[in-house]
Design a protein around this nucleic acid. Structure first.
Lengths: 194, 194
DNA sequence: ACCTAAAATGAACATTGTTCATTTTTTCTG
DNA sequence: CAGAAAAAATGAACAATGTTCATTTTAGGT
């Protein structure tokens, strides 16, 4: 069973990094902070991960897995595609509100220029989208697969945009319940369609 | 006329920073790169601006002014609120596509923790939103001012989300014309709503 | 028990943003 | 216009960061 040793170190580092991320946000993730929190040497980070960016991708991987579960749970408790779509959006909002820093890291983190995001991580994002597509398939069975993928992405993007700017408080503050109502109304309008 | 001297230096630095931003993106904006491009000393940056973040806010201020003009031009050429809303969204997409790095800097840049965005810059973002609100006022005159502001923000967020994820190519690449069509369809559905 | 390969270590390096004593320039004043 | 005072510009120095690598420690197999 090769790699078990490295795997233990990786998880120790990820645990330590998660503590820092939750406490102080993505910008507070420093190589020295993580390794000292984990009780290992500075260099250990670079034998366990290629670099700090890959460690952060590992963190985001964990977060996506949790988010994926939360969305799946929300959909499974509801009947009817349009209600399921609403449940997805509200679960997304809830997850973001409950885990603001880990959720923000998902989108705030950027790879260095000319460094592609690894395929395995793109696939994880894709799995989130697939959840929306699955519900869309029930809602509009006549759509081609391509169109459905595009529609899912549009919907995801719009909901994400609403949730993101709401939580960022770039503009005026907004009460949580107002955001929920607005999301619901938004979906109702969008689904009502042409 | 106090501050004229400092103003010249500020613009020289902003011009130099803009060159770097357009060429290599937000991540390539370094104090030394900007000052050497501007032909001034490293310390000059800190007599003209409080720090690098405030310089970047100055850059974003320029970009917002241009974007504001582009949106205003788009609205003014069209009659009828729902077409104007569509024109706004498409102009937003066009601006983002034509100025990807400056547009990305608008939202990718983050102030350090516990450092608030200055009011004058929040006001500039607010002016963008006000353009959407103005069109919404024609479209749905019965909405209260509060509800109209919220609705404008929702709409802006959704359009922004679609445009952002489209240009980021986080998921699969997408032809420009498909994004335009999707944006149009999105607005038609949203506006049609009950 | 030895030996080898893997892993862990932390000192050293390069690159950042930022500060500040010093020098240069500008502006005011007599 | 001369000289002083104020403002601005300078770049060396500092602290904080990610990353590397020669060295030391540890693990596992024969």
């Amino acid at each position: 069973m090769p790699g078990t040793k490295r795997e233990i170190m990786r998880e120790k580092l990820l645990d330590a990094a998660e503590v820092q991320l939750i406490a102080n946000g993505l910008g507070a993730l420093k190589a020295r902070g993580i390794t000292s929190e984990a009780g290992v040497s500075l260099g250990a980070l670079y034998t366990a991960f290629e670099d700090l960016d890959l460690l952060i991708l590992g963190l985001n991987s964990r977060t996506i897995a949790e988010l994926h579960q939360a969305l799946a749970a929300a959909v499974s408790q509801i009947e009817g595609p349009s209600y399921q779509l609403e449940a997805l959006a509200l679960a997304y909002l809830d997850f973001a509100a409950a885990n603001p820093r880990r959720w923000a890291a998902l989108f705030d983190h950027q790879m260095p220029p000319d460094t592609p995001v690894p395929d395995w991580h793109l696939a994880e994002h894709g799995a989130l989208l697939a959840q929306v597509e699955a519900v869309l398939e029930s809602l509009e069975p006549d759509l081609s697969a391509d169109m459905r993928a595009l529609r899912a992405r549009t919907l995801f993007s719009a909901v994400h945009g609403i949730v993101k700017l709401s939580l960022e408080r770039r503009f005026v503050a907004l009460e949580p319940e107002a955001v929920r109502a607005e999301l619901r109304d938004f979906l109702r309008r969008y689904i009502a369609g042409p």
